[in-house]
Structures are given as structure tokens and as C-alpha cells.
Measured scan of single mutants.
Amino acid sequence: HRQALGERLYPRVQAMQPAFASKITGMLLELSPAQLLLLLASEDSLRARVDEAMELII
């Protein structure tokens, strides 16, 4: 289940942060499945989480 969510998330994360897409997707997969579904449904929520992840990385 998580694998399938990751496969759906990755291209969207890659479009926002290509250099760190794998790392960010891995970080996002730590969230609950319900939270992941919310990110897939909301571009704004996904962008906010990706921005948060980038702050942790750099």
C-alpha cells in the first residue's frame, strides 16, 4: 500500500524538487496513509510538506 502511494507521490514531488525527489518522497512516506492520501488530493498541502522537507534537508 505504501509502495503504491510512493509511486503516485514521487512524480509530483519530482516536479517540485527534482534533485531531492527520492529523499523527500521517502520522508513523506513516514506519514500515515491517511495523511498521504490528503497530500495526493491537495497540491497545496503537498507543496507545503515538500517545502518543510527541503528546510530539513538544507
Rank of each mutant, 00 (worst) to 15 (best):
G6T: 11
L36C: 04
E55M: 14
M27D: 01
L37E: 11
P11S: 15
T25N: 03
S22I: 13
T25R: 06
I24E: 00
L56T: 10
E43C: 06
Q17H: 10
F20I: 03
P33F: 12
H1A: 10
P33Y: 13
E52L: 08
E7S: 09
A15D: 09
H1E: 15
S32I: 05
L38G: 08
A53I: 14
A21D: 01
A48G: 05
S32E: 12
F20A: 05
H1W: 04
Y10I: 03
L5D: 03
L28F: 04
H1T: 14
M54A: 07
L56N: 08
A53V: 11
L40P: 00
L9S: 01
R47Q: 08
Q35W: 05
L9Y: 01
E43G: 05
M16I: 11
L31P: 00
I57P: 01
I24H: 00
A48R: 14
L39Q: 00
S22L: 14
G26N: 14
S45M: 13
Y10E: 03
I24R: 00
S45G: 07
V50D: 00
A19P: 03
R12P: 03
L39H: 02
E30N: 10
M16Y: 14
R49G: 05
I24Q: 00
Q17E: 08
R49W: 13
G6F: 15
G26I: 13
S45F: 13
S22A: 13
A41Y: 07
Q35Y: 13
E55W: 14
T25C: 06
S42Q: 07
R2A: 12
S22N: 13
F20C: 04
L40D: 03
V13R: 02
L46Y: 01
L28C: 01
L56S: 11
Q35P: 02
S22P: 06
L36T: 03
P18I: 06
V50H: 00
A19G: 11
A19D: 09
Q17R: 09
M54G: 01
G6S: 13
R2V: 14
R2D: 13
R8P: 03
K23V: 11
D44R: 10
L5M: 12
Y10V: 03
I57N: 01
P11N: 15
T25M: 15
A15M: 11
A19T: 11
H1I: 14
E43K: 08
L37P: 01
A4W: 15
L56D: 07
D51Y: 15
P33K: 09
L29S: 03
A41G: 07
Q17P: 01
H1S: 10
L40E: 04
K23S: 07
S42F: 07
D51K: 15
D44W: 04
E52C: 07
Q35D: 05
E52I: 06
A48H: 07
L40G: 01
M27V: 04
E52G: 06
P18G: 06
L46W: 02
P11Q: 15
Y10L: 09
V13T: 01
I57Y: 03
A4G: 10
T25I: 12
Q3Y: 04
E43A: 09
E30P: 02
I57A: 02
L5C: 05
V13N: 01
R47Y: 04
I58N: 12
P33A: 11
A21R: 01
R8T: 08
M54D: 00
L29W: 02
R49Q: 10
L38V: 10
Q17D: 02
L56W: 12
V13G: 03
K23Y: 09
Q3W: 05
S45N: 10
V13M: 02
P33N: 14
R49D: 02
A48P: 02
A48M: 12
V13H: 01
I57M: 07
V50M: 03
V50I: 09
A34Y: 14
S22C: 09
I24W: 02
L36H: 02
E7I: 11
A34H: 09
Q3I: 07
D51A: 14
V50L: 03
E55K: 13
L31M: 08
Q3G: 08
A21M: 01
A4V: 12
R8Y: 12
V13I: 14
K23C: 06
L39S: 03
Q17F: 14
G26T: 15
L28N: 00
L46R: 00
L9T: 02
P11C: 15
R2T: 10
M54H: 06
Q3V: 12
L46S: 00
I24Y: 00
L56E: 10
L36V: 11
P18H: 06
L36G: 01
E43F: 07
M54P: 00
L38T: 08
R12M: 15
E52V: 07
R8N: 07
L40K: 00
R12N: 04
G26L: 15
R47I: 06
L9Q: 01
E43L: 06
A19Q: 10
V50Y: 01
Q14T: 06
Q35I: 14
P33H: 14
R47N: 03
A4K: 13
L37A: 08
D51N: 13
R2Y: 07
A15I: 08
L5Q: 03
L46D: 00
L31R: 04
P18M: 05
R47F: 04
L28W: 01
V13K: 02
L5I: 12
F20L: 10
L46I: 04
G6D: 05
M16S: 03
M16N: 02
L5R: 02
L29G: 02
R8K: 12
L38I: 10
F20T: 02
L9P: 01
E7D: 08
L9A: 02
Q17K: 09
D51F: 12
A34Q: 09
D44H: 09
E52H: 09
H1P: 08
V50K: 00
A4P: 09
S42D: 10
R12G: 04
R8Q: 14
R12T: 05
I58F: 11
P11T: 15
Y10G: 04
A34C: 06
Q35R: 06
D51V: 11
L40F: 08
Q14I: 10
G6E: 15
R47S: 05
P33I: 15
M27Y: 06
P33W: 11
A21Q: 01
E52A: 10
G26A: 14
V50A: 02
A19L: 12
E55N: 12
L5F: 14
I57F: 05
S22D: 10
R8S: 09
D51P: 01
P33D: 13
A4E: 15
Q14D: 05
A21F: 03
S22Q: 09
G26Q: 15
G26K: 14
D44Y: 06
F20N: 05
T25V: 15
V50R: 00
L5G: 02
D51C: 06
I58V: 09
L5E: 03
M16C: 04
A19C: 08
I58Y: 11
L28S: 03
F20S: 03
R8A: 11
L28P: 00
E52Y: 09
K23I: 14
Q3A: 08
E55Y: 14
M54Q: 03
L31E: 05
A34T: 12
P18Q: 04
K23T: 11
D44L: 08
M54N: 02
R8F: 14
A34W: 12
E30K: 14
L39T: 05
A41F: 07
A41S: 13
H1V: 14
A15T: 07
L39F: 04
L31C: 05
P18D: 04
P11W: 15
L5A: 04
I58W: 13
Q17L: 06
L38K: 10
A19W: 09
Q17V: 13
P33C: 14
R12A: 09
R12D: 03
R12I: 12
Y10H: 06
S22E: 13
Q3E: 12
L36K: 01
G6I: 15
M27G: 01
T25S: 04
R2E: 13
R2H: 13
A34R: 07
E7F: 04
L40C: 03
L29M: 10
A21L: 02
Y10S: 03
M16G: 01
S32K: 08
A15R: 10
L5S: 03
M27S: 02
V50E: 02
Y10N: 03
I24V: 05
L5P: 03
P33G: 08
A21V: 04
A15P: 04
L39W: 02
M16H: 06
L29F: 04
P18E: 06
S42P: 01
